[in-house]
Structure formats: structure tokens, C-alpha cells
Design a protein around this nucleic acid. Structure first.
Length: 193
DNA sequence: AGTATGATTGCCT
DNA sequence: GGCAATCATACTG
């Protein structure tokens, strides 16, 4: 089916894609791990980069679903999103945390820390650990260097949800999702997990 | 042109 | 808990 990669339907609304992605293994050049935390951003979402219309930075969000949207955060970090819904809709899912499983030594070297819980816990840390950079902006997620591997135990995954982090608008929207009980979140969820 | 604001992190007290 | 780093974008004039 068009738009479907691994077990993910990128044509679906962002909150659904954000939940489908939990448990999926994300690798960039063979380095990465299981996605344990995501956030959804929709086109008509005051907290989204796409809310104010197309710009040079968010152009990838207005492109086809199933591609990467890479942006610079606070002038320092490179953060990775997956574009979803129809082309031009400009919805996306921010990948916020991984449970590291592949390329631990590489990620430790890139991050400069040993603790596996500090390698990919947060969008900026994840970007550094996976060497996310602007060259990946707009690239398809179904082709190298990206790999998305289905979660073998997806039906058994238990998810938690809560408000998104670091935003000032639409703060009450519970569009942050995580794998219940994971020790690799960027921050705890308010009540569950 | 100038100013304010971030989908953050790490270091400081 | 506070705050600097650092820069693209948005908003003001």
C-alpha cells in the first residue's frame, strides 16, 4: 500500500502514526534502537512548525509522507521527525527517545557519555547519537541510511500518553506517547508509567 | 533592522 | 531550580 513502510501507515493522522511508531526499531547507518517516545504535530496545530505555513525550515513537512524532516533546535541540536498524512498536509511525528540496541559504541563516542540511558533520551541527544544532520532532511525513510524494523511484539505493547514537552501553545493536547515502563524516556510521563 | 522566541541540553548554584 | 549556548524564524517598526 502507498505510504506504508514496515508496519507504519504514514498516511494516517499524526497521533496515530506516533503511536504506531512506539516499539519500532529505527536505525541510521545501522545505529539506533527501539522508539520509546514520540510526539505528534498536526498542520492546524499552534505548537507545530507547520502552523504558520511553508518556510525554508519546514519545507520537508509539506513534502511526501514517509520522509524525514530535520530541523535545528535552539541553534544547537538536530532533531528528527517523520512526515505523515497526505503530501502537503504537513503533519509530523517528532522522535524523542530510543532504547539503544545497535551501535552502542558509536553512540557513546558521538555523545561522549557512557550511560545508555543518556544516549538517546531526548530529541537533541538522539540526533547527536544517530548523527542526524541537514543532509537527511527530506530523505525517504524506506531507503538507506534509514531502516525501520517492525516491533515483533507490537500487539502486546502498552502505551502511555501525556502533554507534549517544551511547547507553550496547545499544551493540553496529549500528543506525547511512550512505551509504558520504559527506562529510556527523555522525561517521566505525568501519571502513567 | 532590531527584537523575541523557541518541538533542548548541560552545567551551575 | 536557574541559565547560557546559538541561530533560524517570526514579528515589530
Amino acid at each position: 500500500m502507498g505510504g506504508r513502510i514496515a508496519d507504519i501507515d504514514f498516511a494516517a493522522p499524526a497521533p496515530e502514526v506516533a503511536q504506531q511508531l512506539i516499539g519500532v526499531t529505527l536505525l541510521v547507518d545501522g545505529v539506533g534502537g527501539r522508539i520509546v517516545e514520540t510526539e505528534a504535530y498536526d498542520r492546524d496545530d499552534p505548537a507545530s512548525h507547520a502552523f504558520s505555513g511553508p518556510s525554508r525550515r519546514n519545507a520537508a513537512m509539506f513534502g511526501p509522507p514517509g520522509c524525514a524532516y530535520v530541523y535545528r533546535s535552539y541553534g544547537i541540536h538536530w532533531c528528527l521527525n517523520f512526515v505523515c498524512r497526505a503530501p502537503g498536509h504537513a503533519a509530523g511525528v517528532l522522535i524523542r527517545a530510543l532504547e539503544p540496541t545497535e551501535g552502542l559504541a558509536t553512540m557513546r563516542r558521538r555523545r561522549g557519555v557512557e550511560d545508555p540511558r543518556l544516549l538517546c533520551a531526548g530529541p537533541g541527544r538522539l540526533g547527536q547519537a544517530l548523527a542526524i544532520d541537514p543532509a537527511l532532511n527530506g530523505r525517504a525513510l524506506y531507503a538507506p541510511p534509514f531502516q525501520l524494523l517492525p516491533a515483533p511484539d507490537a500487539p502486546r505493547l502498552v502505551l502511555v500518553a501525556g502533554p507534549r514537552i517544551g511547547i507553550s501553545k496547545a499544551v493540553e493536547q496529549p500528543w506525547r506517547f511512550g512505551e509504558a515502563g520504559s527506562r529510556y524516556w527523555s522525561r517521566p510521563f505525568p501519571r502513567g508509567g
